[in-house]
Amino acid sequence: MKAARFHARRDVRVEEVAPPPDDLGPHEVLVRNRLCGICGTDLHEYAHGPIFVPQSPHPFSGAQLPQILGHEFGGVVVAVGSDVRDTSPGDRVAIQPHMAPPDDYYVRRGLTQLSEQLAIVGLSAAWGGFADYAVVNDYNAVPIPDGVTDEQAALIEPAAVALHAVERGGVRPGDSVLVVGAGPIGQLQVMAARAAGATLIFLADINDSRLVLARTILGDIHTVNPLREDLLEILRDLTVGHIGVDVAFECVGQGRALGSCIAAVRPQGVVVQVGLHVGPAEIDAYAITRKDIDLRGSWCYSTLMWPRVAAIFASGIMQPELMVTKRVTLDEIVQDGFEALLDPAGDQLKILVEAGV
């Protein structure tokens, strides 16, 4: 079968690999992949990796380089192992990609992302979404309702990231929110904050193309380019009491963006760090203390969120498919996918890869 495999930095190859085995394990599910999103984590891996891709056998999954990438995907069940009960051949599923030992302290609490033995389908497991097929555990293949499209199935994973961050931030009805970073996660963060009841939302980015897209996709929000506008002055002018926003989300993974969030929240506000930093960040620790604010990390999501996110999509409360700017084939994934998204002058936001369709 065909798969896109990460070998080294700037070295992703679309190549023929061994097909799935005929005999599945008792709790395994064979999925014919449909659509898979290119995530910012995939881009980090391609441009700077290996980061999450293991160079020696992973302690739980045993996976190592080369790695089939792709962890935002869905598909159709082809076959199931003898002890699989929740899915059947023909079911449409979205893949919850986290794996860890079932007796792990955090796994038992639905917090697999916190396990020290965490493995991720498409990053540190034998299979991934950028391929014709994937073999996953039964708990990774979550059935989705008919009201969820194939595009939406591929967007449940990144939406879960944003919804988890909203929970970490404690967003309440009527809150004011700042999102720094207008990439896919940032725009999903706006959607998630609005779903939680936020009514005054600011989105900041230095990429004007993404801000234009955001106004088209997200509607009634305030977009700010901090290279040309005074972000703090705008926030203080428009927020109640002129004291800043209730919650700020850093969705870039950059020290200056985090500093802007700390400066932007009101006293006793909350800053949620969503973006992945590739190095240490300098912050104004005095401002954190003086303003009596909370600085919280937000790492992935609970594995229990998949049915909730699917229900939100089916209801129309969030429409993540509006972010999709292009589809590419597996053969086009490097040049028209990774490179297009890494282009600082590019106009792409979210690209989906047609894998086993």
Results as ranks from 00 to 15, higher is better:
residue 126 A to N: 04
residue 158 P to Y: 03
residue 147 G to I: 05
residue 286 Y to W: 15
residue 192 A to M: 11
residue 291 K to F: 11
residue 119 A to Q: 03
residue 122 G to R: 05
residue 40 G to A: 13
residue 272 V to R: 11
residue 206 I to S: 04
residue 129 G to C: 00
residue 263 A to R: 13
residue 16 E to K: 04
residue 214 A to N: 03
residue 107 V to L: 01
residue 58 H to M: 15
residue 96 Q to E: 11
residue 136 V to D: 00
residue 253 G to P: 12
residue 65 L to Y: 06
residue 220 D to W: 08
residue 101 P to C: 01
residue 139 Y to R: 00
residue 63 A to W: 08
residue 146 D to S: 07
residue 150 D to P: 01
residue 314 A to L: 06
residue 130 F to S: 00
residue 300 C to V: 14
residue 154 A to N: 04
residue 88 S to I: 09
residue 109 R to C: 03
residue 270 V to F: 07
residue 9 R to K: 13
residue 116 E to S: 10
residue 351 I to L: 09
residue 176 S to H: 14
residue 194 R to N: 12
residue 213 L to E: 11
residue 219 G to E: 13
residue 114 L to Y: 12
residue 324 V to K: 11
residue 264 A to Q: 11
residue 111 L to F: 02
residue 159 A to G: 09
residue 14 V to H: 10
residue 112 T to L: 00
residue 251 C to F: 13
residue 58 H to K: 01
residue 128 G to Q: 05
residue 88 S to V: 10
residue 53 V to G: 02
residue 67 Q to W: 05
residue 165 A to D: 09
residue 35 L to G: 00
residue 242 H to D: 14
residue 104 D to Y: 06
residue 327 R to L: 03
residue 134 A to Y: 00
residue 51 I to L: 15
residue 105 Y to S: 00
residue 342 L to T: 01
residue 110 G to V: 12
residue 315 S to E: 08
residue 302 S to W: 09
residue 218 L to V: 12
residue 320 P to A: 02
residue 116 E to K: 11
residue 331 D to T: 13
residue 173 P to C: 05
residue 209 S to L: 06
residue 180 V to D: 15
residue 312 I to H: 07
residue 301 Y to E: 01
residue 302 S to G: 04
residue 95 I to R: 00
residue 303 T to H: 03
residue 63 A to H: 03
residue 147 G to D: 08
residue 283 I to D: 03
residue 185 I to H: 05
residue 11 D to M: 14
residue 85 R to K: 14
residue 50 P to Y: 13
residue 317 I to D: 14
residue 117 Q to G: 00
residue 191 M to S: 06
residue 176 S to N: 07
residue 146 D to T: 03
residue 133 Y to P: 01
residue 231 L to P: 10
residue 294 D to Y: 06
residue 340 A to W: 10
residue 292 D to R: 12
residue 185 I to Y: 10
residue 357 V to E: 01
residue 205 D to Y: 10
residue 236 R to N: 15
residue 326 K to S: 09
residue 222 H to D: 14
residue 108 R to G: 01
residue 89 P to N: 02
residue 183 G to D: 07
residue 347 D to H: 15
residue 66 P to Q: 05
residue 253 G to S: 10
residue 22 D to Q: 06
residue 1 M to K: 02
residue 279 G to M: 05
residue 325 T to Q: 04
residue 255 G to N: 07
residue 180 V to E: 11
residue 278 V to Q: 15
residue 345 A to N: 14
residue 261 C to A: 04
residue 137 N to V: 06
residue 348 Q to N: 08
residue 292 D to Y: 08
residue 196 A to K: 00
residue 330 L to G: 04
residue 164 H to V: 11
